[in-house]
Design a protein around this nucleic acid. Structure first.
Length: 325
DNA sequence: GGAAGTC
DNA sequence: GACTTCCAACGCAAC
DNA sequence: GTTGCG
């Protein structure tokens, strides 16, 4: 029996016995869990136990993505209709078996941070009420280097989702012209994420410039449908915000396969570019449908990110002489 | 969700 | 034991 | 220095 299957079975057993108990996660690791019957998505009817099951099923895909990255948790201890807060630092009460690392901030402040990569850490984050998992676009040992850069397509108020799809196609067209490759996923919340896999030792300044350059070109070509205006008030109505501003050291993005705090329990779902039809909807990819989709189409995210932009391509976009390192 | 403090 | 209070991020650009 | 934004 797979490790995941075994954990699912234990969760079901604990739910039958009242919703509180110990998960045995192998190699002597145990995790205390509680309130598994608590509604976390009241309208859709999903519980904390369902969230734990979802992340267990996704762990073969998700754990490699968040491995060695500091985690930024969006916690809803009383479900998505209750208050939330972000957590970055590992609390004093972090149990043994949960992965942490001492991180020195740019200011010199040292804090113990939660670090992704193993199942006990992932399920612990759910135990304390995490719905969405965000991470750095860098690993802890190479924190000054971005391994991805992200363009977030965020539709304005009352902008239909098909507009975002149209803008994503415009982005794809510019990427093709610039000879750049990128992966595509739903944000799970309201828009789409376009993620460029970067060559080794790409500093965040370069990562940000590449994403901003793409965004600028899209807006130049389609000013009626896309904007890079950061101030909400100043954004033209009926446009999609092409956000390339989230690619700095220490900033975070939601991980692929993460659940989102939406009524229907949608997830950030990797897509093939040829799936980008006008009929695609965020609500198709949920806590309920994603496991079957992954069984059917496989791990699209790792496949897409393996297709990495070259140093030469990045330097060309930045108008630089290619590095010879 | 969890720790710490109060009645 | 029940109840209350407190705590749980950060980077950056614009103003 | 504060606010807006994600």
């Amino acid at each position: 029996m797979s490790g995941e299957r075994n954990v699912i079975k234990q969760l079901q057993q604990i739910e039958r016995e009242g919703g509180e108990g110990e998960l045995a996660l192998g190699r002597g690791k145990a995790l205390h869990v509680s309130s598994l019957d608590k509604p976390f998505f009241p309208k859709a009817g999903y519980t904390k136990g369902d969230v734990m099951r979802y992340y267990t099923l996704m762990s073969p895909m998700l754990l490699p993505i968040i491995k060695d990255r500091p985690l930024i948790l969006k916690r809803y201890p009383n479900g998505i209709d209750g208050p939330f807060f972000f957590q970055q630092n590992a609390g004093k009460s972090t149990p043994p078996g949960v992965r942490t690392a001492m991180i020195t901030a740019a200011t010199g402040a040292r804090t113990e941070r939660l670090v992704g990569g193993d199942l006990s850490t992932l399920l612990y984050t759910v135990q304390i009420g995490t719905i969405a998992v965000h991470t750095w676009q860098a690993r802890i040992k190479t924190r000054q280097y971005a391994d991805t850069t992200t363009i977030d397509l965020d539709p304005g108020e009352d902008v239909p989702f098909r507009e975002v799809i149209t803008v994503a196609k415009y982005v794809k067209a510019e990427l093709d012209k610039m000879m750049l490759v990128a992966a595509l996923k739903t944000s799970g919340s309201s828009g789409l994420h376009i993620v460029l896999s970067l060559p080794p030792r790409t500093v965040f300044e370069e990562a940000a410039l590449v994403a901003e350059r793409v965004a600028e070109r899209v807006v130049e070509a389609h000013p009626d449908r896309a904007t890079i205006e950061r101030s909400i008030k100043a954004r033209p109505s009926h446009t999609t915000y092409v956000d390339a501003q989230q690619n700095a050291e220490g900033k975070s993005v939601v991980a692929a396969y993460s659940l989102r705090e939406r009524p229907k329990a949608t997830v950030s779902a990797p897509l093939e570019w040829n799936e980008l039809r006008a009929t695609v909807r965020l609500e198709q990819f949920t806590i309920e449908t994603m496991p079957a989709r992954v069984r059917k189409v496989g791990d699209l995210w790792s496949a897409a990110l393996r297709n990495r932009n070259t140093r030469r391509a990045i330097d060309r976009v930045l108008g630089k002489q290619s590095r010879s390192t």
